[in-house]
Amino acid sequence: MDETRMTGTAGREAGGENDPRTGRAMDTVVRTRGLTRRFGSFTAVDGVSLDVGRGEIFGFLGANGAGKTTMIRMLCGLLMPSGGEATVAGFDVYRESEGIKRNIGYMSQRFSLYEDLTIEENIEFYGGIYGLKMDEIRVRRDALLEMLGLQAEARKLTRDLPLGFKQRLALGTALLHDPKIVFLDEPTSGVDPRVRRAFWDVIHEESKKGKTVFVSTHFMEEAEYCHRVSIMRDGKVIALGSPGELKREYGRSTIQDVFIEVASGRTAAGGGEARAGGSGDSAGPAGKGGEGS
């Protein structure tokens, strides 16, 4: 079957039981096998198999249209896959999307708080939607406002915030209900480097607390902050591994150079295939999580 083949290349054989970062065994929280999504005759995501563990920061790199957003949308339950399997937090994407929704946070490319509500009203609304009690909402709201240094602005309309704060507020809101997994779809596009830095501080903080973070990005230096990175092209994962591994494998000094070589498909015809296969082997750490224990 499809997924067996895929696990074959990307998972099982590569084997290994340990977290690439800590060396400790880890639980898989996101697992896909041959996950595919077609839009008419166009295949946006083509047989992707991944295992991502607890506390891992997993980066999606890829040119526009490579399938990153489609991948994230399927894992969030926003889009039905056309084929393959996937579980998120142990829930099946086809049948148990309600379970998934309780356990994930999501931040899309677009700013998705209500601009005509105040900051605290936005927090209260999303807290309420996630079923938090009013006093829980208050505690978390105050903590979030303090973290952002926005206590004084709590009653201001969200539309009046600078973009950087808006994005950090959106991230804080996506984390409000303490989800196991957070999906961030190009969360830092359009914000300045200082804010981006602050953003990544939060991401690392959450990862230490055991949250799994999926993040897609255009910024190659951000890829260096991830524990593992997958590079997608034409709906396929063509390279997968820790930033260090990828750089070693492709003999490049930065992820940017690796990305340019891999994603542009400059490794012509047969070479491309070989590379893809090769990256499958290097994707070992992915399998480690999946088959751990």
């Binding site: 926003l78 309780r102 994930i104 999501y106 998705s112 939607i129 996630y130």
Partner: peptide, 11 residues
């Protein structure tokens, strides 16, 4: 404005 999508990933 994209909030509908945001609501769809909530319970």
């Amino acid at each position: 404005i994209g909030t509908l999508e945001q609501l769809q990933v909530t319970p």
